[in-house]
Design a protein around this nucleic acid. Sequence first.
DNA 1: GCCTCTGTATAACGAACGTTTTACATCTGG
DNA 2: CCAGATGTAAAACGTTCGTTATACAGAGGC
Lengths: 182, 182
Amino acid sequence: MDKRAELIAAADRLFDRHGFMATSMDQLTEAAGMSSRTLYKHIGSKTDLIVAVLAERHQRFMRQMEVEVESVDALFAALENWVATEGANGCLFLRAVGETGGDVPEVVDVMADHKAMLGLRIEQIVKTEVPGHHATDLAEQILVLFEGAMTASIYRGLYAVQSARQAASALMAQARRGEPPR
Amino acid sequence: MDKRAELIAAADRLFDRHGFMATSMDQLTEAAGMSSRTLYKHIGSKTDLIVAVLAERHQRFMRQMEVEVESVDALFAALENWVATEGANGCLFLRAVGETGGDVPEVVDVMADHKAMLGLRIEQIVKTEVPGHHATDLAEQILVLFEGAMTASIYRGLYAVQSARQAASALMAQARRGEPPR
DNA sequence: GCCTCTGTATAACGAACGTTTTACATCTGG
DNA sequence: CCAGATGTAAAACGTTCGTTATACAGAGGC
């Protein structure tokens, strides 16, 4: 069994639940079921662990995106599923940047990469769903709805995601009907 | 001059810029220009200071809401102005809850109060702008757009807020035209 | 059979944390 | 004019932090 993967999985849970700074290395070693020496041999430092957790999340996200998300509606359906099964604590990438004040370049970079790829994928989807449409502005609206669903679901739960899904569907339908982008 | 107000203003800036946990009491005393003894006499503890900062933000927010926001469009215009002048680091209430893991009841409470009042105000506005319409679902969509604009503007800047504003305008127009709520 | 690898358990490290204390200065109202 | 409130400066408190070091145990390949 891969010790490093176990560690990252345990760290993901703790960081998401309690925050990055509020999670101590002692809690992490205990949750991962390994000695601190092994932990440091595998990841180097707490900062490295944070980056590794984010990188792992990014990969999981991309995989899911490419496998089962080929429409705007499927995007929000996937988020509904995520919130229903894993709960909602807000975007872990932005939380990491916020807790570190944007002062850790590796954290900022992995967040930027993640968000850039999210934006690109949404633009791709929008372009195939509404062909011949200048999709940039519409894609940005979908992105904002997605981000809002993730954030608002912290205190509104699934209803926020369902509302975002409906709003996205309405905006997409309107664009398909050929309303001119302003 | 009110020492407590100075302290809260300085703390607001530091918390927003660097995060709550990452801001030490030493940094706070220095930024507020007072000794640690005075600081503790005025607020009691770091947790109390966090709560005080959030409570102050909530009051500022409410004041601005009631004065200059009487339409959905004005809501997003106000956010545009906020992001343009103060920058975008995400909702400080949700960041505080995230950093404390939801384990500090006073922090959770002030966040919940703030979000409840935001939701209520949006519902009010939507109801007056689209009378005779079952406004609950539409209001939730506007709320999600607002939350998404605040969050996405961290990495997208003003464009996210402008996009949210346009999307909100489209959804409101559609509702005014009498499209049935699904 | 020994050597290296990989692991545990645990204690120690110096630094930084939130908070309190001690000692002293300055203003203000009766 | 002095008593009380309110402030500063700075050290000390005990704890916890991230990280490293010490001592030892088992497994597998040559």
